[in-house]
Computed example of a mutant assay.
Amino acid sequence: MRLVQVAQHADDLDRAAGFYSSLLGADATAVFDPPGLLFFDLDGVRLLLDRNAPTALLYLHVDDVAAALERIGDRAEVVSAPHVIFTHEDDTLGPAGHDEWQAFVEDSEGNTVGLISFRPVAS
């Protein structure tokens, strides 16, 4: 079994497309309006932005949390600045020998989105 699709609420598809295109560094893969559906490909998992979907708390892997925040600029409010939340001693939840960095932003539609990146532990 694998995850195929996650949905997130979006009132304004154009605004959401701008935000997520900036964050993900990729254009939408499909738009169906009506009924109000916008899709992005997340490495084989569909991200659906939908006017009728409830809000969800998404955690998205990015190469570098700070760089992702720079890319989205003033399109999002930073809820929690980048910080280390965990050091992975083994590969159970992330790559061994790496710090897990997270930040949280409020997207263009008022949803909270977590951003995660991994960096080797500094010696």
Rank of each mutant, 00 (worst) to 15 (best):
I85S: 11
H83F: 09
L57F: 13
R71Y: 03
D50W: 11
I72G: 08
A81I: 02
E109Q: 14
E70P: 04
A53L: 05
V45S: 03
V45N: 04
A76W: 04
N52Y: 10
L60D: 03
G25A: 06
T92F: 12
T87Y: 00
S117K: 00
G36T: 03
R51M: 01
I116H: 06
V31N: 07
A30Q: 15
G36Y: 01
V79G: 03
T29M: 09
H83I: 10
T92Q: 15
L47H: 08
V45K: 05
D64W: 06
H98M: 09
L60T: 03
G36I: 00
D50R: 07
S108L: 05
E89I: 11
A26T: 14
D27W: 08
L48Q: 10
D43P: 02
E106S: 14
S108Q: 06
A68R: 07
V45A: 09
P82V: 04
A81V: 11
A56S: 14
D74C: 06
R51G: 11
F104V: 15
I116Q: 15
L48I: 00
D99V: 00
A68F: 03
E89Y: 09
P54A: 13
P82K: 07
G94T: 01
Y59L: 14
R71S: 13
V62W: 07
A66T: 15
L115V: 03
H88V: 05
E77R: 14
G114P: 02
A67D: 13
E70T: 14
V78S: 02
Q102F: 05
G73M: 08
P54S: 12
V78A: 04
L69H: 05
V45M: 09
G97Q: 08
T92V: 13
A28Y: 11
P34E: 06
E109R: 01
D64C: 10
D43K: 12
L48K: 02
G25V: 07
A26W: 09
F40A: 06
D43W: 10
L48E: 10
R75I: 00
G97M: 06
L38P: 04
G110M: 03
F32D: 13
L69W: 03
E109V: 04
N111K: 03
E109L: 03
A76P: 08
F40H: 03
F86K: 15
A28C: 10
E100K: 09
V78P: 01
L93V: 14
N52S: 15
